[in-house]
Nucleic acid binder design. Structure first.
Lengths: 120, 120
DNA sequence: TAATCATATGAACAAATGCTCATATGATTA
DNA sequence: TAATCATATGAGCATTTGTTCATATGATTA
């Protein structure tokens, strides 16, 4: 019924026991999808800079654009990506929209990431 | 001398004090580059699956290919990406190459990531 | 030594991504 | 009410990315 066989592997399984056990321990597809979207959103240098900036202070779109020396449009597009994965939230005051980090997970992730890249 | 001005921002700075302070608190370009490479490497679903699998057990290339139902070539290409950011290390035994996680940072990052996506 | 096996890698190509440009929207100000 | 400002967004385009295919390498086995 459920066709879980490997359709394209062009080499023999060497350790069938390990493969079968690990297969049962893999996360669900939906979790993997969400995780990859989250990590994709923090893998771009522009978005990384935005997140670092917001971890220091609430900021509006114009300020971020000025800080990074980029166009308002580019920043606005990237903020939408960060909103979609709920890394930032926004709050409108008149014409100005203020962005802040949505929660603290991203700071924890940055810390682990920086620890990792520091090891060389 | 040092041209730090924003060349492309098409809107006025609204909070100059905040922008100037945060500018001094931003990480160095090299750190940002390394971080983005690291996060890029965990943003692809295939590589995420490989890392989850290796967090459960040491595995050879054929086993991973079988587990994920993908070609040996595709897996091999992706393992190179993970090697380049030192997320996995490998060890050769005869013809077979065994891959393992290089350190525990990736598990910590996954935990924070899963915590984040679970909040909805 | 020849055949086979596990893995690595370069080229090619389709799909995804990030920016720019033009323009839309919704709020303030003259 | 008209002009202006802060922000958002769609289309277009160049670049990057992930896979396949063909082939190379280095080790084992017949």
């Amino acid at each position: 019924m459920n066709n879980n066989e490997a359709p394209k592997c062009d080499c023999a399984v060497i350790h069938e026991d390990v493969v079968n056990r690990v297969k049962g321990e893999m996360p669900e597809e939906e979790q993997l999808y969400d995780l990859s979207e989250l990590f994709k959103s923090i893998s771009d240098q522009t978005r990384l800079k935005i997140l670092f900036a917001l971890s220091k202070n609430e900021m509006c779109v114009c300020d971020i654009a000025a800080l990074l020396g980029m166009s308002q449009s580019a920043i606005s597009h990237q903020l939408r990506v960060l909103r979609n994965v709920r890394l930032v939230k926004h709050q409108k005051e008149g014409k100005v929209v203020y962005y802040t980090l949505d929660d603290d997970h991203v700071n924890a992730i940055f810390k682990q990431g920086l620890d990792h890249v520091a090891h060389r």
